[in-house]
Simulated assay, not measured.
Amino acid sequence: MSVRERIDQYIADQPPAKSAELRELHRRILAISPDAQLWFLDGRNDDGKVVTNPNIGYGSATLSYAGGDTRAFYRIGLSANTTGLSIYVMGLKDKTYLSQTYGSRLGKAKVTGYCIRFRSVEDVDLDVLEEVVADAMSPGPAGGLS
């Protein structure tokens, strides 16, 4: 199954309201960066154990780890969770960037060092979410990305 097919299946497998919101966010992210590399992570580790929620990924970045290892990964992640939706901005060097730059304008969202979590798209300002995505997907070090 291709990455696009796995993404479509993941979105379709969600409850109807969450599926519609995921589909809308997926469409908006692709409109901002139509040529972005797509990823799908099923949430399982190398041993097949579920360790996280499945994620749709967009773009490509090289993540650096404290031990000096690097890994290719996505720049933006989108995931459904038990209480709503999450958008991940990977590769941020400054863990306060999201909350300081966007937090007060996002609406009813919890913002951590690299995650924006919210119950519904109705709770957040979608124009601001699009700014976050455009910032993260832009080439170079915008937003403290590596």
Rank of each mutant, 00 (worst) to 15 (best):
V133C: 12
V121W: 00
V50C: 08
L126F: 07
L145I: 08
Y74T: 10
I87Y: 05
D42I: 02
L98Y: 01
S99V: 09
S60C: 02
V133T: 09
E131D: 15
V50E: 15
N53V: 05
T112L: 01
G140R: 11
D135H: 07
M90R: 09
I116P: 04
L78T: 08
T96V: 05
L126Y: 07
N53T: 11
D47Y: 10
S104F: 00
G143N: 07
I56T: 09
L98H: 00
L92G: 13
L78S: 07
I116A: 11
V111S: 02
G77V: 06
T62H: 09
K49E: 15
K108D: 15
S79V: 00
T96A: 13
A61D: 10
Y97V: 02
M137H: 11
Q100I: 00
R71L: 10
P139E: 14
V89R: 01
G140Q: 09
T96Y: 06
G143M: 05
I56S: 07
T70N: 08
Y114A: 10
Y97P: 12
R105T: 08
D46Q: 13
P139M: 03
V124E: 10
S64N: 09
G143S: 11
T62R: 14
V121M: 14
M137I: 03
V51I: 15
I116W: 03
G59S: 07
G113K: 01
A109H: 07
V128P: 03
F118M: 09
R71V: 01
L63T: 08
Y97D: 12
G113Q: 07
L106F: 04
V111N: 00
G103Q: 04
T70H: 05
D69A: 13
G144L: 03
S86H: 04
I76R: 04
S138P: 06
L92F: 05
L145E: 03
P54F: 00
T96P: 04
L129F: 04
S146G: 15
Y74I: 02
C115P: 03
R117D: 09
S60Q: 12
Y114W: 00
V121L: 11
K95P: 11
P54Q: 05
K110V: 12
Y97K: 11
N45T: 05
G77D: 05
Y114V: 04
R44E: 15
V121K: 01
D123E: 13
D135Y: 01
L85S: 10
D123R: 10
T96M: 07
N53M: 08
T62W: 01
D69Y: 00
L129H: 09
S146E: 14
Y102P: 10
D125G: 07
S120R: 12
G103Y: 01
L129K: 08
S64P: 01
A61Y: 02
T82Y: 01
T62S: 14
S146Q: 09
T52P: 00
D135L: 03
T101E: 11
N53S: 14
L92H: 07
L92C: 08
Y114G: 13
T62F: 05
S146F: 03
R75C: 06
G113N: 03
D127F: 02
T83R: 15
G107L: 02
I76C: 08
D94Q: 06
V132H: 04
N55V: 11
M90D: 06
V89E: 05
R75L: 11
K49L: 12
E131C: 06
Y74H: 15
S104T: 12
Y58T: 08
T82S: 14
V133Y: 00
A142V: 04
